[in-house]
Design a protein around this nucleic acid. Structure first.
Length: 207
DNA sequence: CAATAGATCATCT
DNA sequence: GATGATCTATTGC
């Protein structure tokens, strides 16, 4: 038995780093919906593995009852009210970690849930961390799957994603794509608000 | 294929 | 004490 071609890295990590640049904090200090849309196509990197963000959801402020920030400041939600460009990682259903990136200027809550990645580099590592994955499409196509694949946990709560081990970068040569907008997935409140975004036709979007 | 049940615990009431 | 921004295995057609 040998590895099938699709489990091989798309590009070496060093090359990916050479062809991208870290997103600055100003990128995140904007309207949450704009940040959610603009994060599509950017690269998330951690511990030798990297993937292209292909699906996001926006979570807003007090008016958005699906957003954790709508309940106000608690020990869990305090990063959402802090400066942008930091990670909001929370634990859900007794099993899964979910990664969000804090948006909006400091003092105004808002974050973007990262829902799916297109694996690019470090695929062998990701597969090791996600033994249940049956295909490359299955590796990081879900909020709980991608955190497992990249080994992101609550220890990253509040981590600065503009510097450090968990980082988001944008490609220097961007290939254009269409964005599809739909309601968010798996929520009770505000379930018809069009705040989920993904790259049209991409195979790595969650099901 | 689609639909459904069970896992499992941090968080907030 | 109930709930949940999910995933997986299993069942049934």
């Amino acid at each position: 038995m040998h590895a099938t071609p699709e489990w091989v890295d798309r590009i070496p990590l060093e090359e990916l780093l050479a062809q991208s640049r870290t997103l600055p904090r100003e990128f995140y200090a904007r309207d949450t919906v704009e940040v959610a849309r603009d994060l599509l196509g950017t690269i998330l990197i951690h511990e030798g593995a990297a993937g292209r963000i292909v699906e996001t959801e926006a979570y807003l402020g007090p008016e958005d009852l699906a957003a954790h920030a709508s309940r106000g400041v608690t020990n869990r939600t305090r990063v959402l009210f802090g400066p942008p460009g930091h990670a909001y990682v929370y634990f859900i259903y007794g099993k899964h970690e979910c990664l969000n990136l804090v948006a909006q200027p400091e003092g105004t809550p808002g974050c973007v849930l990262i829902r799916a990645l297109e694996p690019l580099a470090g695929i062998a590592e990701m597969k090791k961390r996600r033994p249940a994955a049956r295909s490359i499409e299955d590796l990081a196509s879900g909020p709980g799957k991608l955190t497992a694949a990249l080994n992101i946990t609550r220890r990253h709560y509040g981590a600065d994603v503009t510097q450090g081990s968990l980082i988001v970068r944008e490609c220097l040569s961007k290939t254009p794509f269409e964005i599809v907008t739909t309601p968010r997935i798996g929520i009770r409140h505000c379930s018809d608000w069009p705040l989920r975004f993904f790259i049209a036709g991409n195979r790595f979007v969650s099901r």
